[in-house]
Amino acid sequence: MGLFAIGDLHFGFAVSKPMDIFGENWKNHSEKIIENWKREVTEEDTVLLPGDISWGMRLPEAAADLDVIDSLPGRKILLSGNHDYWWKSSSRLAGQYPEMAFLKNDAVPWEKSFICGTRGWLCPNERSFTPEDEKIYKREQIRLRLSLDAAIKAGAEDIIVMMHFPPVNEKREPSAFTEILGEYPVKRVVYGHLHGAANHKNALQGERDGILYELVAADYLDFCPKRIL
């Protein structure tokens, strides 16, 4: 069974939110993702979706997008992003979509590994970092530990982490997130959020301190789920 990842689907089947204002490559991006997904992913595979899944503001609007995702091949493990305002209750989502896992403060087994994660946030020394960002940054550290501790409690010896925000600032400096990741048997981290060539160029990629970091934002992957294992 393969493990795939793609973030920032930005589906909007029930709302009017054209994405091509962000670049010509975003034109008909939802159709591209669906077509590529069906070609690359089988029912035996698992797909990680690290945030910014739907433009819906409330669950009834997001349901149109979640229904599409639910119908696609493979098992799906979802994480909330900064635009996923519809995500209020993970238990309610799990009840409505029992075949999908909604990751929050917990861990999900995959093969001999565990999938952990949290949304993350801006890191210190970002140009726009504010005192309010500092509060969220600290709260997300707690949520990351909760997820990782849940995996360790379940006997994890190999952990894959997904975050929505990159775990470092735009200068790729170490952060509290990378320090926490280094305390656990984390082998790989996937994240999204970064869009456009300039941001892609500055993304943290490759191995650092024994952990492999990968950007899996949809536009960086040319709207095709990436097989990471």
Rank of each mutant, 00 (worst) to 15 (best):
P73S: 13
D8N: 13
E157D: 14
L79H: 05
F22Q: 05
E126L: 02
H83V: 12
K104M: 11
R92N: 04
C116W: 01
F223D: 02
F22H: 14
K135N: 05
M1R: 15
S91A: 15
M100G: 10
E24T: 00
N82K: 01
A197N: 02
L78P: 08
W121K: 04
A62F: 06
G81P: 09
L59Y: 04
L146V: 00
N169K: 06
E111P: 05
I180S: 06
K104D: 08
H195K: 06
R188K: 15
P225L: 07
A14L: 10
F4Q: 13
F114Y: 14
L72W: 13
E214N: 11
R143W: 01
H164M: 12
L194V: 02
A218N: 08
Y97T: 06
S89P: 03
S89N: 15
G2W: 04
N169G: 14
M19K: 04
E126I: 00
N25G: 06
R227N: 14
C123F: 00
A5N: 08
P98A: 13
E179K: 10
G23E: 04
Y220F: 15
G117F: 02
Q141D: 02
S16Y: 12
Y184L: 02
G155F: 08
D149K: 08
S54W: 05
A203N: 06
A156F: 11
W55A: 14
L146R: 07
E43Q: 14
F114A: 11
E132K: 00
G23M: 06
P185T: 00
S91F: 14
S30D: 06
S91G: 07
D219E: 13
K135I: 01
N169V: 14
D8E: 05
G2K: 15
V168L: 10
D52Y: 10
L78C: 15
P225G: 09
T46Y: 02
L79D: 07
L122F: 14
E179H: 03
L212T: 03
I152M: 13
R58P: 00
E173P: 04
H10W: 08
E207F: 09
A218K: 09
L221M: 09
I69E: 08
G81S: 11
I33D: 08
A101T: 07
P166I: 04
G117D: 08
N202H: 04
A198I: 13
E207T: 07
R188N: 07
K226V: 00
I53A: 14
K38W: 00
I159E: 04
G56V: 13
N28L: 03
K112M: 05
Q141L: 03
R75F: 06
N199G: 03
I6Q: 09
G2V: 09
I115L: 08
N82P: 10
E111H: 13
Y213D: 08
P60Y: 10
W87T: 12
S91K: 12
E40Y: 12
N125D: 09
K38H: 10
I6S: 11
T178A: 05
C123W: 00
E31W: 01
G23A: 07
R188I: 00
N125H: 07
L66S: 05
L49V: 15
V190L: 11
P18L: 01
V108K: 09
I159W: 04
S89L: 13
H200C: 05
Y220T: 00
I159D: 05
S128Y: 02
A176Q: 12
W86E: 14
